[in-house]
Each structure stands twice: as structure tokens, then as C-alpha cells.
Write a protein that binds this DNA or RNA. Sequence first.
DNA 1: ACGCTAATGGAAACCGTTGTCAGATTCACC
DNA 2: GGTGAATCTGACAACGGTTTCCATTAGCGT
Lengths: 366, 366
Amino acid sequence: MGRPIRTRRQATLASLAAELGVSRTTVSNAYNRPDQLSPELRRRVLETARRLGYPGPDPVARSLRTRKAGAVGLLLTENLSYAFRDPAAVGVLEGLALACEDASVGLHLVPASPGSEDVAAVHRAGVDGFVVYSVPDDDPHLAAVLERPVPTVIIDQPSIEGIDRVGPDDAAAVGKIAEHLVSLGHRQVGVICMRLARERNDDFVSPARQSGAHFHVQRTRLEALAVAFSAAGVDWAGVPVVERFDHTVDDGASAARQLLDAYPQITAVICTSDILALGAMAEAERRGLRVPQDLTVTGFDGIAEAERIGLTTVHQPVLEKGKVAGRLLLGSAERSAPKVITLPTELRVGRTSAPPRTVEEPWFGG
Amino acid sequence: MGRPIRTRRQATLASLAAELGVSRTTVSNAYNRPDQLSPELRRRVLETARRLGYPGPDPVARSLRTRKAGAVGLLLTENLSYAFRDPAAVGVLEGLALACEDASVGLHLVPASPGSEDVAAVHRAGVDGFVVYSVPDDDPHLAAVLERPVPTVIIDQPSIEGIDRVGPDDAAAVGKIAEHLVSLGHRQVGVICMRLARERNDDFVSPARQSGAHFHVQRTRLEALAVAFSAAGVDWAGVPVVERFDHTVDDGASAARQLLDAYPQITAVICTSDILALGAMAEAERRGLRVPQDLTVTGFDGIAEAERIGLTTVHQPVLEKGKVAGRLLLGSAERSAPKVITLPTELRVGRTSAPPRTVEEPWFGG
DNA sequence: ACGCTAATGGAAACCGTTGTCAGATTCACC
DNA sequence: GGTGAATCTGACAACGGTTTCCATTAGCGT
């Protein structure tokens, strides 16, 4: 349709060589191995290139031959834009970007919508390796990545035998939260967690769904809570857990509403992320509940906004997580044994946790 | 060094064809044109592929042949990680990511450090087009991008003849701010702006540097301010402008300090971004200046945090900016004439602007 | 002059696919 | 059994480079 914009065939290394009356090798060397030809000839090649509008060796052809794409792929099964919404995700991305920058390597964001089974994008990505960030263990995109003959590093989840992984010690981290709450005297608690499977369930979570969760991190956190509270004499089966598919402040709020509507006696809401916790705080305010006097709220991640408002949470070094993952991937050439790196976490007690409003049975151990 | 991890040669389309006793074409068709061969044969091909661990056609080789990389490059001359620090930049990125997602195309972040002259990364990027976000007009990476024979869209700056561009009408937008301040009665103003050139200058800006700024957007904004205030009878040459190379809240604060230390009589600080304005607010508080009673502060961009604290600013649709740029690039096949898209802006008067503390000459026009 | 070494440029194979086009096979049907 | 249509298949030429291995030439000491 219409007249073609570029009528002239694009210049190529071969055409340039022909124009100059030298071999392709020589032109190639002019770009890649300046020491292999005389400065004079090199100058002439480069100048002719400029004159002909030759932009240098085609990156794709070069990649094919050298078997180096100069990029790492990032797979996160979420709308790509989500990665920019969640501060924790942004931190990971930033860290990863830093690592890539250091290595002069591009970062290729793979478009993979959560619902879609279309893994073509994974196959199409010309990359030297993949970083997979927080996907369910049954994700088809992940399967496609693992088929590719390139190194892979997984951040957070899932945990797969033989594949490098970097993430916090979720069980220990959540344990700190649980311990904190137990020692404050909380026995009537509720939980708000992120999605547990690829199918949406914005509702209470059955025990089966809990233990069969496809998101390793969420499952681990719930299990750790179960262990800790059971140890404190709480019947975990009686603890309500509300799930939200989308990870937004609003969803945190609606989850808190659902939770508190059904279980008004709850004294502490444990959220598996700060974002959800911020929502829970908002809902508490809406109900006229004072935090922490009437209700304790805890989060997870330690994002900036949480810190600002003094949320009790577990901080994990998200930037570091991305950076370490990138380094691990880019330096994976000389390793052979798969590596699992566990990052430190830190309980940050803020202004959103306190003893329950009605201390039924003080636990001063004597 | 050490024994090779994969001793077996990777399976290829050819080896798969050999194994099956069919031609390469047939195998290729099995992947790309299912209608070209019998379902039975196709099944057999795919199954053998699985058995041999063939991950499907090599993306790089395919790209070379089809001349489609399935990715768009993003160039921003900043530490890549910067893009994740500035909410306005994140918005643009998110919009761009959305557009890419819609088109099932990857987003390739090109590593280009601001100081570096090394444009190899641009040459190495296997992409079908570039989006360039806010770089100086003399950036070598930009020059490298323009040499590449692929479509390019520039966001914000610079403005280059013949290249698609999307951005706000900076002059008009800044005009609204200026008009607002003038009508409030401000005549003694100071300006804090972002970097004007690739060389660092964390100091006051000379008129020459102002008019010779290599960042089109900043230059336009300063010029618009000059025009507006001159029209109001203010001698622009006497208006102090402080520049900061890095775009952080802290730099905004230090700039405000420098400005107010030297010109304590100033009644309004005009910042060319919200981030800088947030810093100015912090500095005002540190000095015990009440905003807006003692000092008016304005920003630019309309980021969420600014909105939250009621900053007077000009809002521009950053997400839209990225999305439009992406669509423009991905749909650029059928166009021929270069396009320039101007996005709407909106003055948002908040709680940080008010008449000057000492109204020297009320301007009630009568 | 002569042989040796180092510098320089070239020929050809290869990287893994896709696309075109012509030939082969199958099939239904007269 | 012949015929044309429909369906598959295979040979071959790109795609645009890089790299290994040689051939040639030039420089140099004696």
C-alpha cells in the first residue's frame, strides 16, 4: 500500500565489502577486531559505511552466529504493567536492571499475561537466560522457559530442583511475625493472603486450597503461620484465611472487610504483603477501628510506604534480590551445581501492632 | 574449564528432521503452519521434538530469517534503575509495557549509562523499533538509534525533524503555572530545574546555559517561564534558576536550600518536576517556612504522591504517554508521514500555592 | 639475495531458520 | 483406469553475519 518508504535496499556487510572491493571478513574485522587490519583500511571501511548508511553488523545475524543475544529475559506472569505497580516488584526490577547494566546486557521483558496459555512469547525471546519472578509452580510459561537451553534463575517462587533460586527464608520470616503476635497475646487472628492458584478465588480459603496452593511462597507462609499458632495452642483450622487474586490496596481493604464482617472478634489481621496490609489499615479506619488499640495489622515486604506509616512488617531486601538474581544468572557460566541463595529478613515492629483490646488471659507465664 | 555441562549437542530443526526422516520444511511447518501437514504427522513431529528435548525453532535464527525480532527497544539515558525510581518514569514504562503486551511484543531495556559513550548496546539490541525516552539532543545513543533502520518514537525529548514524537505541550503547561503564580501576585520567584546538559552543574544556571540547554523539555519550560514572567513585568535575567543533575527528592531539597540561602526574598519556588518540588517542600519545612503562607511551591507531572499532599502542579498523563508511544511505534507500518502527538495537561491547584506573604502591590486590576 | 617471521586480507564453512516452487502422492469420481 | 484437484513434501536459496584456516606480502637480519 502506498509507495515504499525505503526504496533502496538496506546496506549490508556484503554490499559494503563489494563496494570497497574487500572481503566480508575484512569488514567484519573492522568492527570487531580492529587489530586485525591496518588502521588505514579500517578508517576507509568505516567511512564508506557512514557514506552508505550502513549501521554496523545486524544484531540478530550476529547473535545467531555468536550464540550470544546480549540480553536476559524476565518472566513474570502478571500483566507486565503490574510489575510497575507493586513497589516490591519495582525494587526487584531495579536490582535486576542494575545487574544487567553492570554487565552491559539488555533486559527483555517477556509479555506473558496470567490467563493466557500462549507461551509463544517465551519461545520468541532472543535471550541468553531467564529470570523468573514469582510465578505459580504450574505456570505454562515457566515450563516453556525451562525447556529453553539457557540458564535460568528463579526469584521467590517456585522452588524447583536443579534450578537456581534466590529468595527470603519465608518460613523463618513469617515465624518472626507469628511469634511477635503470639507474645503480644493474640489468639484470635485472621489472615489475608495473595492468590494461591491461577484460578481466581476472592473468598475464604479452604484447608485443601491452602495446602495445595500453587504459589510456593504463599503456601510456605501459611504453613509457617499454622505451625507457629498451633504451637501456641491456637486451632489453625479455625483461623480464617481470605484470599485475593489481585494485589492492590483496594483488594486488601475488601478482604479485610470480608474478614471482619464474618469474624468481628479478630484482634489481629496478618497480611502476606504490605500492599494488602495498607488496604486492611484503610478498612480499619473506615470501620472506626483504631490501629493498634482495637486491631493489630501486620504486613510483609517492608516497602517504603509501609515504613513511612510505621507498619509492623518483615523487611526483605527486594533490590538485593533482583541484583543477586541477575549476577547469579550472568555469572552462571563457570558454575555447575545449582545454587539457592537465601536472603536475610528482619522483623520491623512498628506502630500497628499491640496487645489485643481485650486481653482474655494474660500470658505472663506465671 | 571443567567438564562441559551439556555434552550432547543441542537438538536442532535439522537434526529433528533427520531423526524423523522428513525434511526440515516439514518440521518448520509443524510449528508455523499447522494446516500445511496432516495432524497425524504433526503430532509425530511434536512428540519426537519433546523426546529429543527440542525447544522449538531457535528464536534468533527465526528472527534473522523473518526479519522480525518481536521486541521493541527502550532507550533512556539514565542508569536503567532510575526509570524505576521516578514515579513519572514508571508511569511511562507501565504504559509502554501495556502497549507491548497488547501486541504480544517484548520490551527490551537497553543498558545505556548516561556518562558512557559506548553505544554498542544499541547496536546489539535485536529489536523491531525503538522508543526513546527523554534524552538530551546530543546523546550518542540517540544518534546510534537513529542510524538503525527501524522505526523510532521519541517521548518528550528531543524533538527531531522526521521522527515521531509524543509529549505534552510543555510551553502551554508551564504557562498555566506561571499565569497562576502571576495572578496570585508573585513577582519574586526562583526556579529549580532538572539537568540541562550532559555535564553536571549542580548550581545556578547562566542565561547562556539556559538557552543552550540540550534537554529540549527543560529548555522549553524555562523559556515559557521567561516569556510569561517577562510579560508580567518581571525581569527574567534577575530570576535565579538552580539546576540539579540528579532527579531526587534530596536534590530538590538541596537546590531549594541553595536558592533560598542566596535569595531569601523569594515568595515562590517553581520546580520543573514534582520530585524536585517534594524536596523543596522538605527544605521549606526544615527552615520553618510554612507552605503556602510563607512560600509557594509548584511542581510538574502530577505524580500520586504530589496529589496526596496537595501540591500545586501540572498534571500530564504519563501512563497514556507510554501507551501512545508504544501504539505509535507498533502501528507505524502503514504510516508514512511522521507524527507528533501532543498530550493534554491540566493545572491542578493544590494547597501549596497562595498569594505571597507580603503582598507588595495587590493586583486586583483596578 | 635469501630465508624467516609477522602482519594482513581472503575463501569457505557455518549459525538455525523460513519461504518458494516444483514435484510427488493421494483421493474421489467419472 | 484415467484424470484433475487437493494435499504433502523436499531441494535450494536466502537471511547477515563470524570465525577458522590459509595464502600472500612485507619487513628484517645476515
